[in-house]
Design a protein around this nucleic acid. Structure first.
Lengths: 190, 190
DNA sequence: GTCTATAGCGCGATAGAC
DNA sequence: GTCTATCGCGCTATAGAC
């Protein structure tokens, strides 16, 4: 198996395990079991756990933002974009995972400085994207025009991350979807 | 030191450590260091970590609900009650802690069945209290009358838990308070 | 109720052969 | 790039003296 492939496979497994269990409940042994190589071989690709988390977050941010950009740039109402953005979190809930960064903000005290900065960058990127969506929705008349853009963007991301966590513990993705559709109504023009 | 006192002291320290770092980043050694007794003595009070978590959650639920009940029963507008309920989370953020149950819903896969049920009970109790507050606010005219009671209660709790997590990673309690005041506006009568 | 001591295991990480 | 082997440590948990 080639270098790059193994490295990618490790990152895939690591991401899934962190989304399901959390950083501190995942070990290099778990990774080596799932990938089918020895623990020492995992260390060949990632010197330390902290290094692996940073690499994982860099990849996740790029992939997530590519999907988000597609939504932001699509030719639909702001309200519809918001609904699609919500859908990303509902889909994650359906596969019984949390948001990678949602999990890591809970465990932020276990991250080093580089990891913490990656998580912060994820939050900023998403708040920025939500601000764009809200502004466009206000302009096209699909979202309420008295919304303070920044505060609302922060509120939406908080609700999505928190709601996904809560739904994993109780209620599941259907209840999450129902709750988010109520939020969407609240933000929409009457 | 008496039995009950030591037991309470252990629970206090355990709660603080879990709220700051998370369940999987806290050990019996941490507890014994902070309380000033040996690790084996901690095990005398709590046979296993899972037992300790359940005892901790039972106590936390009672204490939290006592405070919440005071808010629900106070003689003020529903909107004011909601603001005070929000304040509980802002205060937690000011002491650089997360909600105990907010942390544990992220780490729910590390809990046993009894622990998971305690966390669910906490969520249910708080959603119920929020429903009462919303209903009263709708009746006294301080909150918007088109709010679907259950969905809104779930949304508020999600925003509070998620917002506290996000603010711990970036922005701090002041940004959390600002975001929540925007949420309060959104829920209030115009 | 607290202690010393330890079992038994898993962890992150490293050395060095192939 | 993967392997075997191991280090050093921390973990939960238990046994048994005081």
């Amino acid at each position: 198996m080639k270098n790059a492939n193994t490295r990618q496979k490790i990152l895939e497994v690591a991401q899934e395990l962190i989304q399901r269990r959390g950083l501190n409940a995942m070990s290099f042994q778990d990774l080596s079991d799932a990938v089918g190589i020895r623990k020492a071989s995992v260390h060949h690709h990632f010197a330390s756990k902290a290094d692996m988390v940073v690499a994982l977050l860099q990849r996740y941010r790029v992939e997530f933002q590519r999907v988000v950009d597609d939504i932001v740039r699509s030719n639909v109402l702001g309200r519809t974009k918001l609904k699609r953005y919500f859908g990303l979190f509902v889909e994650t809930g359906k596969s019984e995972k949390s948001c990678l960064c949602g999990m890591l903000i809970a465990e932020v005290s276990s991250l080093d400085e580089a990891g913490t900065q990656e998580v912060r960058a994820f939050l900023h990127e998403n708040i920025e994207a939500l601000q764009k969506i809200i502004q466009q929705g206000v302009q096209d008349g699909s979202l309420a025009d008295q919304l303070p853009v920044q505060g609302t963007a922060e509120m939406i991301l908080s609700t999505l991350e928190g709601g996904l966590m809560l739904s994993r513990c109780d209620g599941g993705p259907d209840q999450l979807a129902a709750m988010l559709s109520r939020l969407l109504s609240l933000l929409s023009t009457k």
